[in-house]
Every structure is written in C-alpha cells, then in structure tokens.
C-alpha cells in the first residue's frame, strides 16, 4: 500500500525496476508536445521544414522527451515525490510512426533521495538516456494531508485513467 502520496523512501531499493511504458510517437503527439512547451521550431511541426534542415521528417523536441521522462518517473513514485534533477542525453530522434519504450531502474539511494536511470528506445535505437534524482517522502501521508472525505471525489477520475494505462 503506497497511500495518497505514493512510494516512500523506505519502500524503494537500488535495483528496483520501473514498469516499461510504450509511447506511440504520433505526429499529433510530436506537434502537441512542441506547442505545449511553446517550441515553434519548424522541425517539430513542418515536415518540409524538417527536410530542409537535414532530417527526414519532423521529430520530437527535447522538452517533450523530458516531459515524458518526468511523467514516467512520477507515474511510478506517486505524487509525493519531488524531482530535483533531470539530466538528459539524446540519441537518435523520435520520428512519427515509431514507438518509444521507456524503461527505468533505481541506480542510487541516499536517505530519501533516489536516482533513477531512464532509457527510451525507439525502432532506430536509443533515443534518450536520463538520470533523474527524486526526493521521496519519509512517510506515506504527511500531517498536512487533506481530510479523507474529499479524497475519493477528486481522486476517482485519476485512478480510472491510471487503470487504463
């Protein structure tokens, strides 16, 4: 039982693997991710513009990749975690029509600070390697937790979405 804040430091060990997450790299996602980060470089939305600048098609922006990596990590830790560091190295681009599979492993732990190594692989090879540092809560629910009576209403839609992923 992880409680409303998610995993605690005590419940995590070096070597723990995060469940893999496959992300279909649709053209829509690549464009939505670029625009949601206010990145209007044409290589992320205009196929001909991308070709003119030396790539065969539009490709995912680094901020989009970072957003997916952050989500992948906090999906697993739960909302009690604080991301303190995110270090990303990009490899082959994420082009539309492919699928990126994210995998991760806990590679370090000091008190309640853990380090997670995340790897995103697409059909052409390694797209991203990230090191993510996360501070986890010591206990499942801090004293300032909201009254339980409000929790079921607000949490229900999120839980439903969680179950379908």
């Amino acid at each position: 039982m992880t409680g409303t804040t998610g995993r605690t430091a005590a419940a995590v060990s070096v070597g723990d693997a995060l469940p893999e997450l496959a992300i279909p790299l649709t053209r829509s996602l690549i464009v939505a991710g670029a625009l949601a980060t206010r990145d209007y470089e044409n290589v992320h939305h205009d196929p001909q513009g991308a070709i003119d600048r030396g790539t065969p098609d539009v490709y995912m922006s680094i901020n989009n990749t970072n957003g997916l990596v952050g989500r992948f990590v906090t999906d697993w830790t739960g909302p009690g975690a604080f991301i303190t560091k995110l270090s990303t190295r990009l490899g082959v681009p994420n082009f539309p029509g492919d699928t990126m599979t994210l995998a991760g492993e806990v590679v370090g732990k000091q008190d309640n600070l853990i380090e997670i190594s995340v790897r995103g692989t697409n059909g052409a090879g390694s797209h991203v390697v990230s090191q993510v540092s996360v501070r986890l809560p010591d206990t499942a629910a801090p004293d300032t937790a909201a009254p339980d009576t409000t929790a079921p209403d607000s949490a229900a839609p999120d839980n439903a979405a969680e179950a379908t992923r």
């Binding site: 991710g33 997916l68 906090t74 809560p137 999120d158």
Partner: peptide
C-alpha cells in the same frame, strides 16, 4: 495533457496539498 501526465499535484489543489 500533451505528456499524458496524470500526476494530480500539477492540476488538483487538494491533491497537491495532501502531499505537503
């Protein structure tokens, strides 16, 4: 929404407060 990130601390005041 673009990232598919369902972490409630980004959108839900109550949930965010319940994490401190």
């Amino acid at each position: 929404e673009a990232m598919g990130d369902e972490n409630p601390v980004y959108t839900d005041e109550t949930a965010a407060r319940s994490t401190g």
